[in-house]
Amino acid sequence: MIHSVAILGASGYTGAELVRIIATHPSLRIAALSADRKAGMQMADVFPHLRHLDLPTLTTIDQIDFDEIELVFCALPHGLSQALVRDLPRSVKVVDLGADFRLRDPADYKKWYGLDHAAPELQPEAVYGLTEFYRDEIRGARLVAGTGCNAATVQFALRPLIEGALIDLDDIICDLKNGISGAGRSLKENMLFPERSTDVIGYSLGGKHRHLGEFDQEFSKIAGRKVEIMFTPNLVPINRGIHAACYVKGDPQAIHAALAARYADEPFIVVLPFGQAPGTGHVAGSNFCHIGVIGDRKPGRALVISTLDNLNKGSSGQAVQNANLMLGLPETEGLMLAPVFP
């Protein structure tokens, strides 16, 4: 059976990545593509690398007949999905790649995003889209909220350790290196090539990064008490990829054993042999996450490194993984592409 899907916000990086993935998916068909500012254009004119595909013309959202759509991917800027999803037919399933439904408490959404939630009545039905930990809930969901890419990278490294009480919850430091595509496709002066090509710079520092809302929500839920990690994101001059270096206190061998056991049957999470470190180039263009554990020279300290592609496993690949579950398809369908290297 072929399922008709729509991609809203198809002119952004995550929209283009969705098209690239779905183009070879045996059970999904792209029936509609929206990009309000580029309505009337062909995807080949917006993204020449997709020229070989037979795709619908870009339209405005209000031109789409949602009665013909089974599932919608919302790849829209923050704040735009809430009212839109509220007005969709209840028969349409939704995977939101933005932040509009990630935080269960609308007050937390306002705290971190500065906006009043436009559809708080929908929030209770939204399932957090970290597939490997919410798989059963996602299967029966109508609305799935994709995680932040930074939030996913760190959670893959730390969730099993918090669940197993293997690390000191009051001393967790996470240092992230993020590819430039994580900042989106809109024009920004500080993202111009001369300003970023030879520079590494931190941003949203001092506990201000919005993904901290997800860490607070998820880690505190697991631990049964308040957990607040120290988190430093940095932009580095690569196109895509996230490298999360998490410094924790705990037994390195026990930490590695716990991660290896937790992810042994997960198709997209690879735990490397003890002492090996993953790189962003080893997962680029794929739905894989690689995790490595390295012991420190001082006993009782460990470095846990998690890497993934922010546009794929951190966003669009995760979205398709969740859509597969929601539509009753094999979870890995259309997603087993090998990483692109070099």
Rank of each mutant, 00 (worst) to 15 (best):
H3P: 05
G12V: 08
G15N: 07
L18E: 02
R20S: 12
T24I: 08
T24S: 15
R29F: 02
A32V: 10
A44T: 12
R51L: 08
L55R: 01
T57M: 15
T57D: 11
I61L: 11
L71F: 05
C74Y: 02
H78A: 14
S81N: 04
Q82G: 13
D87W: 05
V92P: 12
K93H: 09
K93G: 02
V94D: 03
V95G: 02
A99H: 03
F101Q: 04
R102I: 15
D105L: 09
Y109T: 11
K111L: 14
H117Y: 02
P120V: 08
E125W: 01
E132S: 15
G140H: 08
A141E: 00
R142E: 01
Q155T: 09
A157W: 02
L158K: 05
P160N: 06
D170G: 15
I172R: 08
L176W: 01
L176Q: 04
K177Q: 15
K188P: 00
K188I: 08
P194H: 11
S197K: 12
S197V: 10
G202R: 11
R210K: 12
Q217W: 13
E218F: 11
S220Q: 07
K221S: 14
G224P: 03
R225V: 01
M230I: 14
N239A: 13
G241V: 09
H243F: 12
A245C: 05
Q253I: 07
A258Y: 01
E266W: 00
P273N: 08
G275V: 10
P278H: 03
G279E: 10
V283H: 07
V283L: 09
A284D: 11
A284R: 13
G285D: 06
G285H: 10
G292E: 07
S306I: 03
N312W: 03
K313G: 01
G317K: 08
G317V: 02
G317M: 06
A319L: 13
N322W: 00
N322F: 04
N324I: 03
L329K: 07
G334E: 04
L335M: 07
A338G: 03
V340S: 10
